[in-house]
């Protein structure tokens, strides 16, 4: 299975940097996400996770280092997390690391809500971005 590497755009729209490794199972999304084609972008990520779960079946570690994402991106991220939750329920090893700048920022509150919605526990890591 191939890695998924996408360099984020930072001009007429903002997409995050993506680095998903099939070999190590370490997956990172970093930067900002507000864009026109949110679902086309995130569908590639969802498809990669689905393939990893079926073909690779190794432990997966997700590092979210997002400093801002709009509501349509949040919906897409939640869909990825629901997929990871199912993998965990089926016996897969899933670790979520959520990096945030401070507890006042909106991504911190989003992370709280997404944990509540999926039942997954995130490691909340304070980190300057």
């Amino acid at each position: 299975m191939n890695d998924l590497v996408i360099k984020g755009e930072k001009k007429t729209y903002f997409t995050p940097d993506v680095n998903f490794s099939a070999q190590t199972g370490i997956c990172e999304i970093a930067g900002e996400s507000y864009q026109e084609e949110t679902f086309e972008f995130f569908n590639k990520l969802v498809a990669w996770i689905e393939e990893f779960i079926v073909k690779v079946k190794k432990p997966i570690v997700f590092n979210f280092k997002l400093s801002y994402f709009n509501t349509s991106s949040a919906r897409a991220i939640l869909e990825m997390l629901i997929l990871l939750k199912k993998y965990k329920e089926e016996g897969g090893s899933v670790e979520i690391n959520w990096y945030y700048q401070d507890e006042e920022d909106s991504t911190y509150e989003e992370a709280e809500d997404m944990q509540s919605q999926t039942g997954l526990r995130f490691n909340m890591i304070h980190h300057a971005m």
Partner: peptide, 27 residues
């Protein structure tokens, strides 16, 4: 309400969660 709308959008396979105005109120 935001979480409810998002779950509905995912279940219905619709692109929009219709949560933009909720986010405006929160912010």
């Amino acid at each position: 309400l935001k979480m409810t709308f998002r779950e509905q959008a995912i279940d219905a396979h619709t692109n929009s969660g219709n949560v933009g105005l909720i986010e405006v109120a929160l912010k």
